[in-house]
Amino acid sequence: MNEPVSSETYSAQIRRLAELTARVSAQRSEAHTWYAQQVSAADRAVAEAAEAVRRAEAEVTAAQRMVDRVDGEVTYLWAQLRDRLGMSVRRLGDPPGPARDVAGDPVPLLRGVRELLERTGTPGELPGSVNPLLIACGVGGALVAYLLGIGTRALGAGSGGDLAVGLPVLALVITLLGPLVGLAPARLLADRRHAVLTPRPMILVAASGLATTLLLLAVTYTR
């Protein structure tokens, strides 16, 4: 048979059970708090990681745009350099690639290269050393116009009707335009030397062509 338990022993057991229940409740509450803290920390870590990924993707996109911009600028400046030097693509080669171990913003460097090319590529005036060539352009243009005028006049002499009247007039007009014909080769000369055909060489060409035209007309009509 079960022996009766004294009231003191029963009370002690109740107190011990209450203490254990309180300890378990405290440990359970602590576990819940720790779990909530861990979940919150994990959520913050995930959010920070997602933000870091977003920033990294934005930086990659910006870097790719910068690379495309730099590549396009380099290709354009390389073409400008080729035009300045008058070299073919095969002789000059491909544009240079990115240099290693180079840091910094490439935009100011490219701007400096562009400004340098603009300064060196600005067309200047033709030097005085080409004056004989300009005179030759004027004389040659006048001779070409004079010969065309002779041919037109001869064609009119062998024709009849209105052509016999109109072609000699046309021949005279062509001859009188002789001083201006030399401007075409003079322009080609200026382009090849990357210069501007300013009024000085134009006047020199026109004056030499006019003198040649007047001399040819004088010789023709004094025969």
Rank of each mutant, 00 (worst) to 15 (best):
M1Y: 05
S6A: 12
S7W: 11
S11A: 12
R15I: 03
L17C: 09
E19C: 08
A22Y: 10
V24H: 10
R28Q: 11
H32A: 14
H32I: 14
T33H: 15
T33Y: 14
Q37V: 09
A49M: 08
A50Q: 07
V53L: 13
R54A: 13
A58P: 03
E59V: 05
V60S: 15
A63K: 03
R69L: 15
E73N: 08
G86N: 06
P96C: 02
P98K: 03
D101G: 05
V113G: 00
R114G: 10
T122N: 14
P123F: 09
G128M: 11
P132G: 04
P132K: 02
L133W: 02
I135A: 07
G141V: 01
V144F: 05
A145W: 03
A145C: 05
I150C: 10
L155G: 05
A157G: 07
S159Y: 02
L163E: 05
L163T: 04
V173Y: 09
P179G: 05
P179C: 03
P179Y: 00
G182C: 04
A184P: 06
D191G: 13
R193F: 06
A195D: 04
P199L: 10
R200F: 15
V205C: 01
A211N: 08
T212N: 01
T212Q: 03
L214A: 13
L216G: 02
L217P: 02
A218C: 12
T220K: 12
Y221P: 00
